[in-house]
Design a protein around this nucleic acid. Structure first.
Length: 935
DNA sequence: CTAGAGCGCTCG
DNA sequence: GTACGAGCGCTCTAGC
């Protein structure tokens, strides 16, 4: 192809800035061995360029190509609107020095690298795309940025490099509901919170597309806004016209820039091996250097090798693409035996189970999938039903053909799944372990990709398989909805046809295996192997046993309470209606707000996010001095909460087979390392109010047994005293003093024996506040005192305990430098928001201050739980529940003292030997026939 | 009808 | 605009 750009030419435009960010966030923080220079993003960027160049063969290969970058933070859009991209976080410290290196890398690959001071890459790409199209050529934009979709059209398409998906006119239509030429109109209305483009409040992409399609264009819409039927929309469009027009100018790309180069300058050129290898060697990318040298048929230049063992994985592994059609459906014993033999031989297998529902204690097993290598996976259907013709009202209950009888298959699988020499890998393995346990299989040993992700990336993102697959494998798994449907017509997995079930189930196992291969080597580099191996993985069987044990709940007690609550609520409701002078839904804060603040004109009405008055308890408490109604509503709300969330809902959770309630602990539920409890949540059963506490009377021990509760006393304050090194606090804990009273005494110069409850209460609030990342505003609200007074308290506290202030400042500084904080046991909690601007900065700082304290406490009780089963082995006792600083046991009456002695010893010594705390851990114990008595 | 956002309340 | 970390039931609205 000659240099002149024209018909038959094909231009590739690569969104360089987006590539860099993707590479930076997808990879661990690699550094150059010789000098520690951060090079993770450069490494990822080079690998992407390499793969790109390698893939560019064949008739559709580009003739011209450019990698385009943003340059400078101030563009013409900032002149139009000073808030444009104002929410954007500062560039991470580790990324900044890598930016010039990516330019250098692009040039080393001999690809045109273009940037213009004060212009965004998008505008340069827009201009180039227009020029190329006018010259009669074709354009492919390699980016997933939706802002670029407005450029799509005749001769111009986008390619999402993450999903390897072409976005043409139809793709744009799917995303925006309008064609490319109207994308700016939709964006102008919908706005963009990431770039801080205001748009029209309350209008999203869906609504915007609707309006544009109805009126034809934004201008037409704005001119004829009076014709809109919905009053709110009409008003918004009329009132916010200027803002919308401004938004359009912000999102409209500039196709008409003057460029200091021409399309002809972008002609594809072969890289010069010497230049390219020189750059790669300088960066010390050994794998990539060797690969490229081999391809070019030259000797790979030597890269310094300080430690041969610890090489970073610069290149994505050479795995086959994930292909749901490529998996085997195992339908006879011979095939099953082959898969099992393969797994035993390899010593590693990924396992996934398919069931009829999400409740592990009630659902039925439908099938099992195995993966032994990337791309090599199978599905073993066990309980699929035959498809009926689709005509009858009743689905057929006949078994589908081609399945091994379940007992035979499970008998063959059991030795594999229980084989101590074969590692079973799962994603959220606790689920599968519980299901299999009900079918007589105790799966072990296990690895869990969800927990690896939690140890490596806690705080960065979620840990569900879809998230992980997209993030680390660039693959979107088949959505389960595609098989089951949704809503009323949803079917269960046993009604999914075998071919579809095979694709879905085996893919899950394949993905899990690939994730494990990705994460496992990273644990060590990220220094979280100990966290994973001592705090995460061994907790799985412990939680499994607790959950399967469940706790006895007395239905009669709950039912009687429910009836009483209903009666009282009805009485209160009629009183409330009388006081209000009209009937309304007491359970609707919106209706209540109108009554209180409009009809009755009471003071203090604040509106929430959707313009409705908010009516939280503290506001109603203040209003109770003005009128009788708010107090009645508070009483009604308390009863309503107790009835709906506890006495009614808990009854629904009593398992018909076991007669007990089985919660499910979410091990990755809290970023700090705490557990979460769900379905039902047994960590928020009422205790603070007298009426609520009675709910706990329904949690009982069976005949001949008692419930025993052991809880850590003041564990977070003790950890704070240790971590911040506060001698006065440590001393007080060592002497077993009343810590809040002691704090009050120090702060307010009141002798301990003259302490009043109120002064102590204030000191207690401050102590808690410190753990939460105290603020004058927060303390003032909590204590209901003026803000200045609260600030005075805090100042005095910091004066008296200067180490606390130092700890808080140090923790925030650490978070800002490393984008993470750590617990005493090495748990890493990432703090990606710490560099945010505006109100989010405050949130992120307080979270960073709290996380090491809350997280260390969570680590300690986890350590106790992991050790507990062995310690109480032989005692007639079961550990049933964990409530953050409390463990609840069910014990035979005669063994209570033994249990308390043993469990207390384990809990009080749980930090050792890894951490030697400067303060003692103290555990209080209680016992009784029900949870109210035991606590 | 169903899904999701927002509110409010429960716990440590 | 604000104390940290969670889950869940109800109401209300947008969209099928």
């Amino acid at each position: 192809m000659a240099g002149q750009f024209g018909k038959g030419c094909h231009l590739h435009l690569i969104d360089g800035s987006a590539y860099i960010f993707r590479a930076f966030h997808a990879l661990p923080p690699l550094t150059r061995k010789s000098d520690g220079l951060p090079i993770g993003a450069v490494s990822g960027f080079c690998n992407m360029l390499h793969r790109y160049v390698e893939g560019n063969t064949g008739p559709d290969a580009p003739t011209h190509v450019a990698v385009v970058f943003d340059k400078g933070s101030h563009t013409f859009r900032n002149d139009l609107y000073d808030q444009y991209k104002a929410n954007r976080e500062a560039m991470p410290e580790d990324l900044r020095p890598q930016i010039p290196l990516t330019r250098e890398a692009t040039e080393a690959f001999n690809i045109a690298c273009k940037e213009i001071e004060g212009f965004e890459a998008d505008d340069i790409m827009a201009t180039l795309a227009c020029q190329a199209r006018e010259a009669g050529g074709r354009v492919t934009i390699l980016s997933s940025d939706k802002d670029l979709m407005q450029l799509v059209g005749e001769g111009v398409e986008m390619l999402d490099p993450m999903k390897n998906k072409v976005i043409d006119r139809d793709g744009v239509l799917e995303k925006f509901g309008v064609g490319p030429e109207r994308v700016v109109d939709v964006q102008a209305l919908a706005g963009d919170s990431v770039d801080n483009v205001p748009g029209a409040p309350g209008i999203g992409i869906k609504t915007a597309a609707l309006l544009i399609n109805e009126f034809g264009s934004l201008e037409e819409l704005l001119d004829r806004a009076e014709e809109i039927k919905q009053p709110k929309r009409r008003q918004t469009l009329i009132e916010k016209r200027e803002q919308i027009e401004l938004s359009k100018r912000l999102v409209q790309l500039d196709c008409d820039m003057e460029l200091p180069f021409t399309l002809d300058d972008l002609e594809v050129k072969e890289p010069d091996p010497e230049v390219l290898l020189g750059f790669l060697t300088k960066m010390e990318f050994r794998t990539l250097t060797k690969r490229i040298a081999d391809n070019a048929g030259v000797e790979a230049p030597a890269v310094p090798e300080p430690t041969a063992a610890a090489e970073a994985p610069e290149a994505a592994p050479d795995w086959p693409a994930i292909d749901a059609a490529a998996y085997e459906c195992v339908s006879d014993m011979a095939a099953l035996e082959r898969w099992i033999a393969r797994a035993v031989d390899l010593g590693t297998v990924a396992v996934d189970t398919e069931t009829t529902g999400l409740n592990e204690m009630r659902c039925d097993l439908v099938g099992v999938s195995l993966a032994v290598a990337p791309g090599e996976a199978c599905y073993i259907p066990l309980a699929h039903l035959a498809e009926d013709g689709g005509e009858g009202l009743f689905a057929s209950d006949a078994k589908a053909e081609g399945q091994i009888p379940m007992d035979q298959a499970l008998a063959a699988l059991k030795p594999l799944l229980e084989d101590a020499a074969v590692m079973k890998i799962g994603q959220n393995m606790k689920y599968d372990a519980k299901v299999l346990s009900r079918y007589g299989i105790e799966i072990a040993p296990i690895d869990d990709t969800m927990l690896m992700s939690y140890a490596l990336h806690g705080g960065e993102h979620g840990h569900g398989m879809d998230t992980l697959s997209e993030r680390y494998l660039s693959h979107t798994p088949i959505p389960i909805k595609e098989l089951l449907g949704t809503g009323k017509s949803q079917i269960t997995f046993d009604r999914v046809p075998l071919d579809k079930a095979t694709g879905y189930a085996a893919e899950d196992a394949d993905i899990t295996l690939r994730l494990a291969l990705t994460f496992k080597p990273q644990l060590h580099r990220a220094r979280v192997t100990r966290v994973y191996e001592t705090l995460e993985r061994p907790l799985v069987p412990v939680l499994k046993t607790m959950e399967m044990a469940g706790i006895a709940v007395d239905r009669g007690t709950l039912s009687r309470m429910s009836g009483k609550f209903a009666q009282k609520m009805a009485e209160l409701e009629s009183e409330i209606h009388e006081l209000a002078g009209e009937k309304f839904n007491v359970g609707s804060p919106a209706q209540l707000g109108d009554i209180l603040f409009e009809k009755m004109s009471l003071p203090g009405g604040k509106r929430g996010k959707n313009g409705k008055y908010s009516t939280p308890a503290d506001v109603l408490e203040d209003l109770a001095t003005e009128h009788d109604l708010p107090g009645r509503v508070l009483d009604w709300r308390q009863l309503s909460k107790l009835k709906s969330t506890y006495t009614d809902a808990l009854q629904e959770h009593i398992n018909p087979d076991t007669g007990r309630v089985h919660t499910s602990y979410v091990q990755t539920g809290a970023n700090t390392g705490r557990l979460a409890s769900a379905d039902p949540n047994l960590q928020n059963i009422p205790v603070r109010s007298e009426e609520g506490r009675r709910i706990r009377e329904a949690f009982v021990a069976p005949e001949g047994k008692v419930l025993v509760s052991l809880d850590y006393s003041q564990i977070e304050l003790r950890i704070l005293a240790h971590m911040a090194g506060i001698d006065a606090l440590k001393e007080a804990f060592r002497e077993g003093q009343d810590i809040h009273a002691m704090t009050a005494s120090e702060m307010f110069n009141v002798p301990m024996d003259e302490m009043t409850p109120d002064v102590r209460r204030q000191a207690k609030a401050i102590n808690f506040g410190v753990i939460y990342g105290i603020s004058g505003f927060g303390l003032a609200r909590n204590l209901r005192i003026p803000r200045a007074e609260a600030q005075g308290f805090i100042d005095r506290y910091f004066e008296r305990f200067p180490g606390i202030k130092q700890y808080m400042d140090d923790t925030v500084a650490f978070a800002q430098e490393h984008k993470r904080v750590e617990t005493l046991f090495g748990r890493v909690i990432h703090t990606p928001e710490i560099g945010a601007k505006g109100p989010r900065a405050g949130f992120a700082k307080r979270a960073a201050i709290n996380a090491p304290i809350q997280g260390t406490a969570a680590d300690i009780i986890r350590r106790a739980m992991v050790r507990m089963p062995e310690a109480i082995e032989g005692l007639p006792a079961k550990m049933l529940l964990q409530v953050h600083d409390e463990l609840l046991f069910e014990v035979e009456t005669g063994a209570v003292d033994d249990l308390i002695g043993t469990a207390r010893r384990i809990m009080e010594g749980a930090a050792e030997p890894v951490v030697k705390l400067d303060v003692p851990l103290v555990v209080d114990a209680g016992q009784g026939a029900n949870w109210a008595e035991a606590h």
